[in-house]
């Protein structure tokens, strides 16, 4: 029924030009072979893996996850029974990182603190991302006056200094993982919503969305098939940074005394308590905890950075 695009025009083999005037002398399709770069996700994973720091970061995170959640199964340190007689002991065989002023094993404390850091980090970010994405997507899709009002509301909330309002709200709620996550999440969704809205707005005018409309696609279908998958990459990158930020803010709360209540503890809480003992030279109360905190946040930031570069490459490859 149709002529094969790659065939030569045999009727003109008599002309001086091999392959004829109009056809392609090559085997294979006229459009040329497709250079295999690699499929989308594989490309992103390869870019990510090339960034060695990011791989290290990922390894570090996995290590800490295992350390904090599985560690207590292995290392049975006392983090729950006050044992004042054994307070402030330097590191030894019995207590690998010494004890704090209430006699708790410092290493065990770090594990418990790490658990709260990851839990709150993930939970708060989850709340922020879900709320922020939905809000931003709706604003971007509906547009017009509603979008304006929605974004003004975000502007107003963003004007309130984040740490201040979180601290004030923390005074009312006892410090549990859930309550702190919710308080953090309640104010962390603002920036993701702006990002998602921006992304949706720019996507709406792209040619492939217009093409879908020309084909007769309903708006809902465009949202699910085109807008959300493309906006996802923005959110994925955002999640890692959100987790990093949440852990940092949690440490601020803890340091200032508004963190988690006993028996839970957070690294910030530990540092807050340890400050008083620095002049005594009880270094084990300060530096191991601080180091863990910095390393975990750093790992999240590295991974987030690499994710952003990797996902960018996918779109930019021409």
């Amino acid at each position: 029924m149709t002529e094969n695009a790659g065939s030569t025009s045999t009727a003109h083999a008599s002309t001086a030009l091999p392959g004829g005037l109009y056809g392609s002398p090559l085997d294979g399709p006229e459009g040329g072979e497709v250079q295999v770069i690699s499929s989308g996700w594989r490309l992103a994973v390869r870019e990510f893996a090339d960034n060695r720091l990011a791989v290290v970061g990922l390894a570090v995170l996995l290590f800490f996850l295992a350390f904090c959640f599985l560690g207590p199964l292995v290392y049975h340190g006392n983090a729950t029974n006050a044992d004042v007689l054994n307070a402030n002991l330097p590191p030894s065989g019995a207590h690998l990182l010494g004890t704090d002023e209430q006699g708790f094993d410092e290493l065990a404390n770090i594990m418990v603190g790490g658990q709260s850091a990851f839990e709150i980090g993930f939970f708060a970010s989850a709340v922020a991302i879900v709320v922020g994405t939905l809000y931003g997507a709706v604003a971007g899709l509906v547009g017009g006056f509603v979008d304006g009002v929605m974004m003004r509301f975000v502007d107003v909330l963003l004007a309130i200094p984040f740490l201040f309002i979180v601290l004030v709200l923390s005074t009312k709620y006892t410090g549990t993982v859930v309550s702190i996550s919710l308080v953090l999440g309640c104010f962390s969704w603002l920036i993701p919503s702006r990002l998602v809205r921006g992304e949706v707005l720019s996507l709406r005018t792209r040619d492939f969305v217009l093409a879908a409309r020309v084909m007769g696609s309903s708006r809902t279908r465009i949202v699910y098939r085109h807008l959300i998958p493309n906006a996802l990459s923005v959110t994925i990158v955002n999640v890692t940074f959100l987790i990093a930020d949440s852990i940092l803010v949690l440490s601020y709360l803890g340091f200032l005394g508004f963190g988690l209540q006993f028996p839970a503890t957070s690294w910030g809480d530990m540092l807050g308590g340890a400050q008083a003992y620095m002049s005594n030279g009880y270094w084990w109360l300060v530096y191991p905890v601080g180091a863990c905190l910095v390393v975990v946040v750093l790992a999240f930031n590295l991974v987030g950075d690499a994710l952003r570069d990797a996902l960018d490459v996918r779109l930019r490859r021409r």
Binding site: T2, A5, G6, G28, P29, E30, G31, E33, V34, Q35, V36, I37, S38, S39, G40, R314, L315, R317, R318
Partner: peptide, 15 residues
Amino acid sequence: QVGLPLNALERYPHE
């Protein structure tokens, strides 16, 4: 008809 090979189906536009 447009002169592309079959293996193009599995690929993404950026390729």
